[in-house]
Amino acid sequence: MSLQVENLTVYYQTLRGDVQSLEQASFKLADGEIMGLAGESGCGKTTLGNSLIYLAPPMKYIEGRVSLDGEELPIWDLARMNVYRYKKISLIPQYAMNAMNPTRKIGKMLSELLRSRKISYVDLLPEIKHRLDIVKLSQDVLNMYPIELSGGMKQRMVMVLSTLLDPSLLIADEITSALDVSTQKSVAEMIVKFRDCGCMKSVIFITHDVSILYQIADSILIMYAGQLAEKASTNVIINSPLHPYTKLLISSLPKVGVKYSEDKLSGIPGTPPLLLDPPEGCRFRERCPLAFEKCLQAPPFIEVENGHFVACWKETPA
């Protein structure tokens, strides 16, 4: 088991109270697994990703344990986490386009960053060049400023930067959202290629685009309003989902060969609840066609089949 998360609960502190954006998240990630983390905006995907690497105010740690390669991570302690950051757990941020210091040459910035972590840039240089080749970037980029790179190039450069120290876990946060479809595909394929050549062990690939996960992810974790809804292998999620939200989500995706001019795509009626004061129990209750009295209590996230977890009373054996 590469990553093990138990009952992780993280809130955002605001003047109007705590925003309960991540509630009792428990899941596991195997070595070499690329897990897609999907859900709509504001459902806590990024909160989950960030809390694993940099849990800073206004985020507030409430409870939960995280262990990586059998070692418990002190995610609530900003200073003690520093040992693990970059070396064991790394991040490709949502804002990869602006992630590099605009006034430093990329190579210089990287060498200063590595020196600050007591790692020699010169020793790593052959490896850096090798990885630039993998992502099809010229080695000259090390002598350039970020402004001289296109958006897709910056994205790939940040990918090389973030994975340089072979972390056990890489959190890729919405890395394809700002790119066009063809670039999206090549970036996603590079993540797979990096995993295959051992640049990182496992990946949490955060996105709201389920179709891209279908192409690269081994498993998919669906979140709704701060709670985990369902986790299973990609095929199971796509073909035989159990949670009503996943079912509705998957059925909202367009299918090949169907003309939607005759048969309109149906969305999910309603909107997600505000997380400042979320409803008791299952947070999908109000939009769920199957909801009944028991849904007033939060359903546990349990394994119904091998590797298939779901949080729904309808699927829980009594």
């Binding site: 940099y54 986490m81 950051r85 960053l113 600050s116 972590r117």
Partner: peptide, 28 residues
């Protein structure tokens, strides 16, 4: 608060380096 500062923080860069970058960019 800029993105590059947050990225460096997430990669565990020391405050000294982040402040240095901030000063160099803020002086312009």
């Amino acid at each position: 608060e800029a993105d590059y500062s947050n990225y460096l923080k997430a990669l565990g860069a020391p405050n000294k380096l982040i402040r240095k970058y901030a000063f160099n960019n803020g002086i312009l």
